[in-house]
Design a protein around this nucleic acid. Structure first.
Length: 106
DNA sequence: CTCTTGACGCACA
DNA sequence: GTGTGCGCCAAGA
């Protein structure tokens, strides 16, 4: 680890503050590859440290998790975010306009 | 080594 | 405004 795109992804995701969410494209952009959101998803897929890397805080550009999400159950992810204070706008969609993590805000 | 799939995002018709 | 396809990077078969 160290230098790889994946490691950078984990690093960024780990930096996401509690109660905030980031999009795959945003993380990819922070890694230096704004068009590589796919690799970000894959990086979280291999998620070596789920306890340290809150993948539940990473959502797609719509603010909702992918239907393939299954690191413990979609419901699980929703509960975790709600517990952090994130309000869901619908069934499994968060209000990015409010909870989207901004590097400038950190 | 080549082709396909994938936790995404966006440009084009 | 909507529908379709393509692009980027990586991994699996």
């Amino acid at each position: 680890m160290g230098g790889s795109f994946f490691d950078l992804v984990y690093k960024v995701v780990r930096k996401i503050p509690k109660g905030r969410v980031a999009t795959y494209g945003q993380v990819a952009a922070l890694c230096g590859h704004p068009r590589n959101a796919r690799a970000v998803g894959y990086a979280l897929h291999v998620n070596p440290d789920p306890k340290q890397i809150p993948c539940h805080r990473v959502v797609n550009r719509f603010g909702g998790l992918s239907p393939a999400f299954a690191f413990g159950g979609e419901q699980r992810q929703k509960i975790l975010l709600q517990d952090e204070g994130v309000d869901f706008h619908g069934l499994d969609t968060v209000d990015l306009a409010v909870y989207r993590w901004e590097e400038d805000y950190q």
